[in-house]
Computed example of a mutant assay.
Amino acid sequence: MGSVNRTPQVVTIAGSDSGGGAGMQADLKTFQARHVFGMNIVVALTAQNTYGVQASLPIPTYFIDAQFQSLDADFAIKAAKTGMLADSEHVEAVVRNLQQVDFGPLIVDPVMVAKGGATLLEPEAVATIKSKLLPLADVVTPNLPEAEIIVGRPIKTNADTIAAAQTIQQFGVKNVIIKGGHRSEDDQAADYILLEDGSSFWLSAPRIATANTHGTGDTFSACIAAELAKGQPLKSAIVTAKAFLQGAISQGIFVGHGHGPTNHWAKLSDKVRMSETR
């Protein structure tokens, strides 16, 4: 019995993407690629492809409870991440369960809008995430549109990004990563990282002209969770996640007719650069 639960284990608490490019499917592929054992707690089902989301079906909260209880009874989960949480009722169910288990560091990917434009989070749930989920989070990873929704103001410049991260940190989350991929006028995709100790830095990589970016947010946050589960320091985990995502985009695959998925078996990119706050 001495070898029981020695393999690093990670859980994604998210929605299912029937098209396989985002949601818990992207998370599980990332976990596998980063050599951790992945498991999932399903919060919602979607009928989804690279064109967008055609239908969604939230899971009854009692069944979310059952999934948490089942995993907690058997596994030694070392990190967890959240993705699509649907609405306030389901956010509250996830929060309630997270308060009853120890699944290690929590990475919150505040999924709000799909690549095709479909809303994946009911508006009233934003307030629930801010007041109840973020205080439990070790890391939150909004993209620019999500960060704008959270702080309630536009983010146009680097100074705006820095101020937004500081605002988000005030909700109780320890570490904030605002992803800059949506700032299309820049030739570099630059992410701003504000750490718990007040230090900060930028991570940048060349912007790639491609429509195959479905599931990038899920993949990035899942990689951070995987690295933390293996015992990597947070800063190293973030850098690895950026390199993993850059590789997954730049070494593309071609699936579907719309916003295609990234390549989860790609090699880490060597194009990621770190710089001081600017």
Rank of each mutant, 00 (worst) to 15 (best):
Val176Ala: 08
Tyr62Ala: 13
Ile178Cys: 06
Ile107Val: 15
Lys271Ile: 00
Ser204Gln: 14
Arg96Trp: 01
Ser16Lys: 03
Gly217Ala: 11
His257Pro: 00
Gln232Glu: 11
Thr219Met: 04
Trp202Phe: 15
Ala55His: 13
Gln170Ser: 15
Val151Cys: 09
Thr240Lys: 13
Pro8Ser: 09
Gly215Arg: 06
Ile178Gln: 05
Leu85Glu: 04
Asp87Thr: 06
Val101Pro: 05
Asp27Arg: 07
Ile64Trp: 05
Asn97Met: 12
Lys115Glu: 10
Val53Gln: 07
Glu146Val: 07
Phe220Arg: 02
Asp65Tyr: 10
Val255Ile: 15
Pro123Met: 09
Asn143Tyr: 11
Arg6Ile: 12
Ile208Leu: 11
Val95His: 10
Val10Cys: 11
Leu228Ser: 03
His182Thr: 07
Ala226His: 01
Lys174Thr: 04
Arg34Phe: 04
Gln9Leu: 06
Thr30Cys: 11
Asp138Ala: 12
Thr12Ile: 10
Asp187Lys: 15
Phe244Gln: 10
Gln246Ser: 13
Ser70Asp: 01
Arg6His: 12
Gly152Lys: 10
Arg34Gly: 00
Leu134Ala: 08
Leu245Pro: 07
Thr7Tyr: 15
Gln246Ala: 14
Gly38Val: 04
Ser204Cys: 07
Gln99Leu: 12
Asn263Lys: 02
Ile59Met: 14
Ser70Phe: 09
Lys81Cys: 08
Ala165His: 09
Asn175Val: 11
Asp187Pro: 14
Arg153Leu: 06
Thr50Met: 06
Ile13Asp: 00
Lys271Asp: 13
Arg278Met: 07
Pro135Trp: 11
Lys130Pro: 01
Leu228Val: 06
Met84Glu: 05
Gln100Thr: 05
Glu185Pro: 00
Pro261Ala: 08
Ile13Leu: 09
Lys115Gln: 11
Ala190Trp: 07
Ala73Gly: 13
Ala114Asp: 04
Gln246Ile: 01
Asn158Glu: 13
Ala137Phe: 11
Ser236Pro: 00
Thr119Val: 15
Gly21Pro: 04
Val11Ala: 10
Asp27His: 06
Gly104Glu: 00
Gly52Gln: 03
Ile150Ser: 03
Glu227Asp: 14
Gly258Phe: 12
Gln69Asn: 13
Met274Arg: 15
Ser131Met: 08
Phe103Leu: 03
Asp187Glu: 14
Gln246Lys: 01
Gln166Cys: 03
Pro145Lys: 08
Gln251Met: 05
Val255Leu: 14
His257Val: 13
Gln251Val: 04
Leu28Cys: 04
Thr210Gln: 05
Lys230Pro: 01
